[in-house]
Nucleic acid binder design. Sequence first.
DNA 1: AAACCACGCAACCGCGGACGT
DNA 2: TACGTCCGCGGTTGCGTGGTT
Length: 354
Amino acid sequence: MVKSSRGEKATLKKGPWTPEEDQKLMAYIQQHGHGNWSSLPAKAGLRRCGKSCRLRWTNYLRPDIKRGNFSSQEDQTIIQLHALLGNRWSAIALHLSKRTDNEIKNHWNTHLKKRLTRMGIDPTTHKPINDAVHGRSKDAANLNHMAQWETARLQAESRLVRESKLRLRINELIGSFCSQASPTRLNSWTLTSQSPSPTTTADNIPKMHSMYAMMLATEDDLKSPTSTLSFPDTIIPNFGLINQSLLLPSSNAGGDRGIIMKEASDGASYWENSVGSLMRDDDIMVAVEGFRSRGYNCNNSMVGLQNDDELAYGFNEISPQQNLGVSNIEEEGSTSFEEKHYWETILNLVNDFP
DNA sequence: AAACCACGCAACCGCGGACGT
DNA sequence: TACGTCCGCGGTTGCGTGGTT
């Protein structure tokens, strides 16, 4: 491992890069690849630290970087993704080809954030600053929204990695969950009764679901008044991960449903659904997202330990009246409808705003 | 013309996760 | 398990530039 001495460290250059330094760095990387960043400066004849070299390369010199003004389409994408992911610039950058996280971050801080603020939209919550819709105080509304976005962000993080292939499979998979079957180890599911009652207010969670549904929808869905997404009406109040079994027990809808993790002869693990079909990690995630969209809120907390290694996570049900999931998205007058139009309004405003 | 200010952007800093020893 | 190193990320800083007074 190459380690710089104290003397070397003291003479390391900082600050703006000169064209000569850029040339040296580019020439070296094009010939050898960057390899170990720590040892690169010495090999490339640069008096910089490896970190500085890496930053210069990834944010500026890399040949696949697009420079120049952001298009309105890029602005839209950034705003949408920021609403879901928050300040996770690297994740946002994955969805804007040839833009670096640093560039997107700077663009947000210097342009988009201010633009939204001038439009009367809180750039943190992406909600109108004077939110009188629910007659709550601004602070309380912000707190609720922060909670919403945090949850939505966790969901989106998984989803964004898997992208469009999940959309294609979503109805098929949800359908498979609704077939009759009995999961094994249901007797172990004693911890579900310890699930804490919903800690979030009833009126904000459905909005979170409908917001998330907006992001699940394709671009065409957003433009069209009719969502193509649908989820089953089955009530499944709890979601649990117990050791190697992911269970979706149903207490009041007749029949239990579940996904079981099994071990193959070579020691690899795999998932099966209730009818014995092989499932991938993607499938598991889609299923959970489907349940969320039908109005179940993961409380994101470990609610108990059984034996040494059995974990349980609670999934709190939201009452059907409050469930404004994806299937309701086109209903005029519903909160999800308002949310949808709120988003369209934001995007239109961003486009039109000088 | 000079001083001041605001803005945009490149670069730095500190932290935390992953990995190897 | 503990420690050290590498790497990537998000927040912050500071410099250059253009506009205003």
